[in-house]
């Protein structure tokens, strides 16, 4: 016995089991609980908060981040990270504007193909070349932003979208809710089913939970890791295209720092940064929570955007501390 074994978790007593179950529930649904509390408090404090138009606005603002966050959730569940999504988001928007001359098909297909391919390249490097996700996607963040600038004369031109069908994809609404919100919901539902109910989804959780065990169990570890970066690239490209349709232009400077918001939302949503555990419902709660905080700060009016960043940062720090405590309680 030359390997030093950590004291085994050991059989769990009832009291411990209860504590662990509560901690586990808090980890999974904590964001949703805080979200509800904020919604209630906000409605009481600000008369302009709990209005249909404000909520619709929050949902639209959230939808783009949610689609990016959905892809990011898959990546983080495998224990990886995707820093390139902000740049890919911008690229998706610019490509959607270019592609919109071929109508709605061009506006979606063009960005999805290119952004999916960027995800695939990053996935290949991470999964098959064994490079660190942080570095590979940091290179992606820098390189793809460069591509965006190259495509827009150093960012000096902004390709506009004139096709009304494409513009309608972003700005059209049913019951006052914009199309991107419905698309984001579809992405989350499909993603959730994939994750929870398919072999591929289970493999994502297994790889994040223990890569060595997954290898020894004969799971296609490399393929799983490759796939999540493709998914993340597709999601970021889709979100960028929808954002461009919404603003009827492919602004080359959007999405700076978006990767950090997406990672924050995923972590706030209870997905473990080391992988193996989490879900998309949590990411939904995380995204909405960030949007609602931003909206509430705007409601105060006297606070400017720098305060908002401080609050978001402090909030994330608190969430991570709580998550660490919860993880320890569960002896993860």
């Amino acid at each position: 016995m030359t390997t030093t074994l950590e004291p085994a978790a050991g059989p769990t007593t009832d009291a411990q089991a209860t504590r662990e179950r509560i901690a586990s529930l808090l980890q999974s649904y904590g964001a949703a609980i805080v979200l509800v509390i904020l919604l209630v408090l906000g409605s009481i404090a600000f008369p302009t908060f709990a209005t249909g138009s404000n909520f619709a606005n929050v949902l639209t603002q959230s939808s783009f981040l949610l689609i990016v966050g959905a892809g990011m959730t898959f990546v983080i569940l495998t224990g990886g990270i995707d820093l390139s999504v902000g740049s890919v988001f911008a690229l998706g928007g610019v490509l959607a504007a270019f592609g919109s001359t071929y109508g709605i098909v061009g506006a979606l297909l063009f960005p999805l193909i290119v952004c999916g391919a960027i995800g695939a390249v990053q996935g290949l490097l991470v999964a098959y070349a064994g490079m660190a996700p942080f570095i590979v996607t940091l290179a992606g963040l820098l390189g793809v932003r460069g591509l965006v600038l190259a495509a827009t004369d150093g960012g000096s031109t902004t390709p506009l979208i004139s096709d009304p069908a494409v513009v309608n994809l972003g700005q059209g609404a049913v019951f006052g809710i914009h199309w991107p919100v419905f698309i984001a919901i579809v992405v989350v539902v499909v993603g959730s089913v994939l994750l929870a109910r398919t072999r591929g989804g289970q493999s994502v959780l297994a790889v994040g939970g223990s890569e060595s065990a997954s290898t020894l169990m004969g799971l296609p570890v490399a393929r799983v890791k490759f796939s999540v970066y493709v998914v993340s690239g597709l999601c970021a490209g889709l979100a960028g295209a929808l954002n461009a349709a919404y603003s009827s232009s492919g602004v080359p400077t959007v999405g700076v720092g978006l990767e950090l918001n997406a990672i924050s939302a995923v972590v706030i949503g209870g997905t473990l940064l080391v992988g193996g555990r989490g879900n998309l419902v949590g990411t939904v709660a995380g995204v909405l929570l960030l949007s609602v905080i931003q909206n509430l700060i705007n409601q105060v009016g006297s606070l400017n955007s720098s305060v908002q960043a401080v609050v978001s940062g402090a909030f994330l720090a608190i969430v991570v501390i709580i998550q660490t405590v919860l993880s320890r309680t569960q002896r993860l």
């Binding site: 074994l5 959780l205 939970g209 223990s210 060595s212 065990a213 020894l216 169990m217 193996g276 555990r277």
Partner: peptide, 12 residues
């Protein structure tokens, strides 16, 4: 093969 350390996914 059954290894010395349990090679399964503890979270699942």
């Amino acid at each position: 093969t059954i290894y010395q350390e349990v090679n399964l996914v503890p979270l699942m």
